[in-house]
Simulated assay, not measured.
Amino acid sequence: MRILVSGGGTGGHIYPALALINEVKKMNPDAEFLYIGTEKGLESKIVPRAGISFKTINITGFKRKLSFENVKTIARFFKGVSDSKRIIKNFKPDVVIGTGGYVCGPVVYGAAKLKVKTIIHEQNSVPGLTNKFLSKYVDRIAICFEDAKEYFPSEKVVLTGNPRAQEVLGHDGHKGKRSVGLQPSKKSVLIVGGSRGARPINDAVLEVLNQVEDKGYQFLYVTGDAHYENVMKKVKEVGNPKNVIIKPFLHNMPEVLAGVDLIVARAGATTLAEITALGLPSILIPSPYVTNNHQEKNARSLSENNAAIIRLEREFSGEQLIKDIDSILLNDHTLSEMKKASYEIGIRDAANRLYKLIKELK
């Protein structure tokens, strides 16, 4: 079986693609993969490092306002289609899968025009422009949130979940806690704003850092590489409580997630897939800076099922953060009910579902 994958721009498009590749390799060691991305995108560093064959095309995204640059983008799109067709003809894939980002446009469109079987994978509850466009041409549309169904032709849609969730299962939570200095027997909350961090979350934590030492639980606070130095300067001013461990980044996030009791985070699709697969309660602060406000809509799919508390950035503060954490970690009934609700939402076999879809099309 030969599978061509394309996805780029952000980790939210790349990591699900890599997770799918890794899981399919376990199920079918003979499967061959080729990944198409852009030379300047994050995927150009991440994918080759993962040992996956990688090719590039030149394509940029559309500006959302009128711009002459969009004329150039249209020209690049058609050149990208031509280049993609050449790569596809050489690789001869059984299926082409797009996991999001503008690079998928010419790749998946080119494959459809060559009559190669095609799938797009939509991680969010509200699809982006590229997947909306491609939905007219592809054979199947894999979604992670039921809410996304309304944006696509219903006869093509299959609920699969996010393959990234499958990768967080089976880890030793006690080992994960010990690896970052947490006490294995004590309740823990992980506060994280993504790989680069989120300033509003950092500001809220710093606001109440001098008030949490007597709490009956412990904190793992991940600042993000870009914010770590400034955060630590402020920490020196107010002091670092013994029950608060501060890190710039976690390289073993799946292992750590398996050990904590609660997470405070943004509401990216991959994050939500991981925490619901584990049955982890959450306090979600959706980023207001994303297309179509999709993070808030992602988050509401959890809060409406009592698996999460949502706090919009404009109403978020350190005082509110501590109140919310207390309301969950200091109430065993609430903690248990939220864990159960989160687990019931989670899809733990997303890669298997996608692989089944691939085999059906092949």
Rank of each mutant, 00 (worst) to 15 (best):
P163R: 09
Q166L: 03
V168I: 07
V168M: 15
H171I: 07
H171V: 13
G173A: 15
H174P: 03
K177Y: 10
R178N: 05
V180K: 14
V180T: 13
V180N: 14
V180H: 15
G181F: 14
G181S: 10
L182Y: 07
Q183E: 14
P184C: 12
K187Q: 13
S188M: 12
V189I: 01
V189R: 10
I191E: 08
G193I: 05
G194P: 01
S195Y: 11
S195N: 15
R196K: 14
R196I: 12
R196H: 11
G197P: 00
A198F: 05
I201Q: 07
D203K: 12
D203A: 14
D203W: 07
A204C: 00
V205H: 08
E207Q: 15
V208M: 04
L209Y: 03
N210T: 00
Q211M: 11
V212K: 09
E213S: 12
D214M: 03
D214H: 14
G216Q: 06
G216V: 01
Q218E: 08
F219K: 01
L220G: 02
Y221C: 01
Y228P: 00
E229Q: 13
E229L: 08
N230P: 00
N230A: 01
V231E: 10
M232C: 04
K233P: 00
V235M: 03
K236F: 05
E237M: 03
V238E: 06
G239V: 02
K242T: 00
K242M: 07
K242E: 06
N243Y: 02
V244M: 05
I245V: 10
L250V: 06
M253A: 15
M253C: 15
M253V: 09
M253R: 10
V256S: 06
G259P: 08
L262W: 05
I263P: 01
A265P: 09
G268K: 15
G268L: 08
G268R: 04
L272M: 03
A273Y: 08
A273Q: 04
E274T: 12
T276K: 13
L280S: 13
I283G: 12
L284R: 14
L284H: 15
L284D: 15
P286M: 09
P288N: 05
Y289G: 06
T291F: 11
N292E: 14
N292F: 11
N293H: 12
N293E: 09
N293D: 12
Q295Y: 07
Q295T: 06
Q295C: 07
K297I: 13
N298A: 01
N298S: 10
R300A: 11
R300K: 13
S301H: 12
N305K: 08
N306I: 09
A307L: 12
A307P: 02
I309N: 12
I309A: 10
I310Y: 15
I310T: 15
